[in-house]
Simulated scan of single mutants.
Amino acid sequence: MEPSRLRRAVEAGRATATELGLQVDDVTVVHDSDRVALRLVPCDVLVRVAPSGDLAGSAFEVEVAHRLTGVGAPVAGLEPRGGGRVHVRDGFAVSLWTYYEPVGTEVAPPAYADALRRHHAALRRIDLDAPRFTDRIAAALAEVTDRERSPELPDRDRELLSGTLTGLSTPISAERAGDQLLHGEPHPGNLLNTSRGPLFVDLATCCRGPVEFDLAHAPEEVERHYPGADHGLALRCRALNWAMFSSWRWRRDDRMPERDRWRAEGLDRVRAALDRLGPGRPPAGT
């Protein structure tokens, strides 16, 4: 967020927690993008603050958390003192979550795969109205096909991204037999290594699709430990996911740190993934 908006978001998180009776002497920004995550002490609570325009997304995330914790999924839970709901304050949607002290730095691939397998099993036990993964692809495609939304994207790379998004999503989306609820973005940044074991966070990306769509967000070594994975489908999903990631980075209003570096690296990752697909890859720019 822009500095002035970030200050307002921090104050909205602090004021919401204080109003709920929590003691807040200090606030640390844990993550800052379109939404921010704050650690409050000494109450030791994690607060997620999003623009109020994303109220529906925040409410959806809270609902997903409620349902998944009810079936024992390996996910971060809501803070009981937060009322289990989204609070609206000063133009922001504020939700309170349990803070988990991190243990180590990375989750080993076998443990990562096991956590994702258990997460998928829990997702099959809940009933939730969630979008299909193709909705997110369509949103990414809208960014790269509209020059006003992505004015700095070179034509050659615009063709690469639009061709990849269209060419790969069409055959994958045609097969629905293996669809189930997914995390949506279970990349390493959304998996905490805690004393309770690995826990997934950022549940607002929950969608429907093949489990390989989730696996494609994890390191490739994780896929090798996931039972029954279709490795060819996971490879196609990996190229698709990098194309979506790159599309977001070329948005005019994207605020990701080191955006220019990720713009270049994202496109390189798309090309590398397409090269691995070999003959039969989708038509795209070269």
Results as ranks from 00 to 15, higher is better:
L153Q: 12
T166F: 01
Y99S: 12
R263D: 12
Q180N: 02
T16N: 06
D44R: 12
H31Q: 13
P51H: 10
V49W: 03
Y100G: 05
C237A: 14
M1D: 12
L181R: 02
V36L: 07
F200Y: 15
A139E: 15
S52F: 01
M1Y: 09
G280L: 11
P279M: 08
L192I: 05
P151I: 12
C207E: 13
Y226I: 02
P74I: 08
G278Q: 09
S33M: 08
G197V: 07
H87L: 04
G184N: 10
C207I: 01
P80M: 08
P282F: 04
E148R: 15
R249W: 04
V45S: 07
V10L: 14
R156M: 04
D260N: 13
T28R: 15
E11V: 03
E152R: 15
E159T: 14
R132N: 08
P279A: 10
R156H: 13
F60H: 07
L141D: 12
P279L: 09
A93G: 05
I172E: 11
M256D: 03
Q23M: 03
L128T: 03
L128W: 01
R281Y: 04
S58C: 12
G285I: 08
R35E: 11
L181Q: 01
A9F: 07
H87D: 07
A177I: 00
A15L: 11
A174D: 14
E11H: 13
H31S: 14
D32W: 02
G83M: 03
R8F: 00
T18E: 15
E258F: 13
R149W: 01
Y112W: 13
E185N: 14
P198L: 07
L68P: 05
V62C: 04
S247D: 10
R149F: 02
E63P: 00
T145K: 06
P51T: 10
A93M: 02
D34E: 15
V30K: 05
G104F: 03
L116G: 06
D26L: 04
L22D: 08
V201Y: 02
A76C: 14
V47N: 04
G163F: 05
A122N: 06
P257F: 13
G104K: 06
P186T: 12
R255Y: 01
L123H: 04
A17E: 03
Y99R: 11
T145S: 13
E185H: 13
L153F: 12
R176V: 11
L128D: 04
E223T: 15
Y226E: 06
T145F: 01
E265I: 04
V10C: 14
E159M: 05
A216N: 10
D127M: 00
V103Y: 03
S246M: 09
D135P: 00
A272M: 02
S52W: 00
R224M: 06
A17L: 06
Y112D: 13
G70F: 04
R263F: 11
I172S: 06
A138V: 08
V88D: 06
A17F: 02
